[in-house]
């Protein structure tokens, strides 16, 4: 009962502030714009993460690192050492940031974080694999090589460069006896020497134009092969293959 005047004073104070114009009602447009901004920021973040993760997959594939598990346990060991952990860490941070953004939406915060996190990871993985299947990254890479898109040049500068000195990915450009030459995605020609140290090649029909991954030591531009594996060829990765494809299209 003693609090009654105080409570009334709350009502009076609030109403006085409203009537005097000290407190103003924010417009509906303000809230609509805020919501649009939130949706756009979330979408931009999703696209950015997909771009980032697909670039990681693309660069791993181009460098041949993605094919390392084909070489068994030693390959898996090098594979783990070769992963771009900093980029993976940054992607994880961005995914957490996206989860924080997504929690602003009713349909997200009503459910346990585990569900929304799994949904985000699924969207990112599927989106990245789809983007990676397209010539998007290779087109950007070749454009930067031709001097266009100078800002992107820094991003694609180290594209396809193996992080360990033991793995080489390329298309066979010439077969000389047991040995052969490969052209890497960056256009470098490397000589591959097959010796008694080389594990017998399982795929007997290796021929010119095949894409392979070689595990071996490099000395003076010559790779002493320890193991060789045939991989699925991606014409988008190799300039000569792209040019051939282009010629066919023109013809």
């Amino acid at each position: 009962m003693n609090n009654e005047p105080e409570k009334n004073s709350i009502t009076d104070k609030v109403l006085n502030k409203i009537k005097s114009g000290e407190v103003k009602m924010k417009s509906k447009t303000y809230f609509i714009l805020r919501m649009v901004l939130l949706i756009l920021s979330t979408l931009v973040l999703i696209f950015f993460i997909i771009y980032f993760v697909s670039f990681i997959i693309f660069s791993l594939r181009a460098s041949g690192v993605l094919f390392l598990p084909k070489f068994g346990f030693p390959g898996i060991k090098i594979f783990l050492n070769s992963l771009p952990w900093l980029l993976i860490f940054i992607s994880a941070i961005l995914i957490i940031l996206l989860e924080i953004f997504a929690k602003k939406f009713t349909f997200v915060y009503r459910r346990p974080i585990l569900y929304s996190l799994l949904a985000i990871i699924m969207i990112v993985v599927i989106g990245s694999l789809l983007v990676e299947k397209t010539p998007f990254h290779s087109n950007l890479f070749w454009k930067t090589q031709e001097g266009h898109l100078p800002i992107m040049r820094t991003v694609y500068r180290d594209f396809g460069v193996p992080r360990t000195g033991n793995i080489y990915h390329g298309v066979i450009s010439e077969v000389v006896g047991n040995d052969f030459k490969i052209e890497t995605p960056r256009g470098e020609i490397l000589a591959i020497v097959v010796s008694s140290k080389t594990r017998p090649i399982l795929e007997t029909d290796i021929k010119e134009g095949d894409a392979i991954v070689v595990l071996g030591e490099r000395k003076n531009g010559i790779i002493q092969a320890l193991d060789i594996r045939k991989v699925k060829k991606d014409s988008n990765l190799f300039r000569s293959q792209r040019m051939r494809g282009y010629k066919l299209l023109v013809e």
Binding site: K13, V14, I18, V23, M25, K26, S27, Y30, F31
Partner: peptide
């Protein structure tokens, strides 16, 4: 409590 009602008024369009 006064501040709560002021925020309610300011944000009521949302």
């Amino acid at each position: 409590v006064q501040e709560i009602f002021i925020k309610v008024y300011a944000n009521i369009q949302s």
